[in-house]
């Protein structure tokens, strides 16, 4: 019991109160993140409404398979993250460390595939700027599509990179047995962040890759 007390900061009455305050704080932060990505998605929606044909044509340069694989990779990372939180809460150190490492590996795999896709965009002159080349009508709208593509996926990748960094710290601490049944809030709260980044991609995949693919 004395161990538990030591982990409760002086402004909190109980460990449970401290945990719910931390969880609530993360949800408040995620609400601001919803609007951060929401603003960019709003811009995407308005420009797509203005020139739907050009957006469809531009999106056909995307690789549906690579994007789909990345979606599956990220969904799997959410599963391993949830299992890491579960293992930490149960005080199972080895399983917790294993699941955190798996989550990091899947996050890194996502970024690696994303890097391949970015490389293809550079090779195909689809990066907005002086070297942007797009055949056919609506090249201006197509360039806007790719600006929004790099903006949205870039910020998403940045969030994922930060997530991997936080997980690295958590893994090191979990390996040293810092998280127990009584105290595992950092894992729980980081899990919330990780799942949010997954949700952003759940919306980005159909919006970026799956526009009128039947054409």
């Amino acid at each position: 019991m004395s161990d538990d007390r030591a982990l409760v900061a002086h402004q909190f009455e109980t460990a449970a109160q401290q945990r719910s305050a931390a969880t609530l704080g993360m949800w408040v932060f995620l609400a601001t993140e919803v609007l951060f990505f929401g603003g960019m998605l709003m811009a995407y929606t308005v420009y797509r409404v203005m020139d739907a044909g050009a957006f469809a044509l531009a999106s056909h340069a995307q690789n549906i398979l690579l994007g789909g694989i990345n979606t599956a990779v990220l969904l799997t990372s959410s599963l391993t993250m949830a299992l890491a939180v579960q293992a930490s809460a149960a005080g199972r150190r080895r399983r917790s460390v294993l699941m955190l490492l798996l989550t990091m590996a899947l996050g890194a795999a996502f970024l690696a595939i994303k890097a391949v896709e970015y490389g293809q965009k550079f090779a195909e002159h689809l990066v907005p700027g002086v070297d942007f080349r797009f055949a056919g009508p609506g090249a201006g709208a197509a360039q806007i599509y790719f600006i929004l593509y790099f903006l949205l996926t870039g910020f998403h990748a940045l969030h994922l990179t930060i997530g991997i960094g936080v997980l690295a710290v958590l893994t090191a601490r979990a390996a040293r047995g810092r998280y127990t049944q009584a105290y595992h809030t950092p894992v729980e709260v980081t899990g919330l962040y990780w799942h949010f980044v997954d949700i952003v991609w759940i919306f980005l995949y159909p919006l970026i890759y799956l526009i009128q693919v039947y054409r």
Binding site: L24, W27, V28, L30, A31, T32, E33, V34, L35, G38, G39, M42, T45, V46, V49
Partner: peptide
Amino acid sequence: VVACAGALWLLFMCVLTL
């Protein structure tokens, strides 16, 4: 409530803009 608030404000932005 906080989780729903994020979605609610997003909805306001989308509806009013569109």
